[in-house]
Design a protein around this nucleic acid. Structure first.
Lengths: 147, 147
DNA sequence: AGCATAATCGATACTTAGTATCATTTGATG
DNA sequence: CATCAAATGATACTAAGTATCGATTATGCT
């Protein structure tokens, strides 16, 4: 997993400053095993302003150190980035996040490229689950109709 | 494509009432070829309250007559539902929406099912493009880093 | 070490997208 | 055509994030 120092290194390599707030956030960030919300970060870094938390999140998403994803209803969650291209498996109940890779799927999406006059610039794939932990706690999986 | 009457029929079949506001919205909805925002609908149906517009959108998404999707930055858009399971190709510049189907991809996602103790309840796939129309208008495609 | 200054900060006000409340209106049914 | 739950519009609120701005601070320079 990513360490606070690695996060700070990417920030500095990007030409941004290594500040007290960013160090605090890097620490809190790396302590999260699962997905988290922006407001959780705000609550966990007292003294660091809301605006700074959101600014730092935006910076880290741009630097591809954080992934922004969303639950079926659209509420946002963040998770520390994994190495390389990947997608997310999100528990719709507790919001925990795992990753998956499937290169066959990537290839398929690339084939769309020529379908129309459009230029493909990216894609988003999220798989929704009820995770094993939620299942043992008695959560009943109900299908979500997403596209 | 979907007609206002078809929308009203689904509403009534669902046990909901056919009201003046819903008829107005059904008309406006079906006049949209491309994707649209909730606030566009609010602006296009003067006299119908904001709350009613959002309530009706929610109803129609539940009835699977509308699809809710989002641009790379997360801002939401809606589009009239196509028949059967499908996914969306969204222009990141103008927000226009096309659909695509790829049954091989569906099959692949189903295979994930057994990977962990999780139960898969759904998935979301969006492909981002700069569409042909935007390209001729000089929009330069830049890759978005999504997952 | 001291300084200049652009980057960053926190506080605060604002925006966007949507939900909750509630008194009033309305459409389906008998 | 009376009933009454469903639906409505006005309004206040929430969630997630952005813009503004005066104060602070990290970094490069000497």
């Amino acid at each position: 997993m990513l360490s606070p120092d690695e996060i700070l290194a990417v920030i500095e390599d990007g030409g941004f400053r290594s500040t007290a707030s960013r160090r605090r956030l890097a620490d809190v960030l790396t302590s999260h095993e699962e997905g988290f919300t922006a407001e959780e970060l705000v609550a966990e870094t007292p003294g660091v302003g809301r605006a700074t938390v959101y600014r730092t999140i935006r910076l880290l998403v741009e630097q591809e150190l954080l992934c922004k994803l969303s639950l079926p209803d659209g509420t946002p969650r963040y998770t520390l980035a994994q190495r390389g291209h990947h997608h997310h498996v999100v528990c719709q109940n507790c919001g925990s996040v795992r990753e998956f890779r499937q290169s066959a799927m990537e290839r398929m999406l690339k084939e769309l490229e020529s379908s129309d006059g459009d230029v493909v610039t990216g894609h988003r794939i999220e798989v929704f689950v009820v995770c094993a932990e939620c299942l043992v706690r008695g959560v009943v999986p109900t299908n979500v109709h997403q596209h």
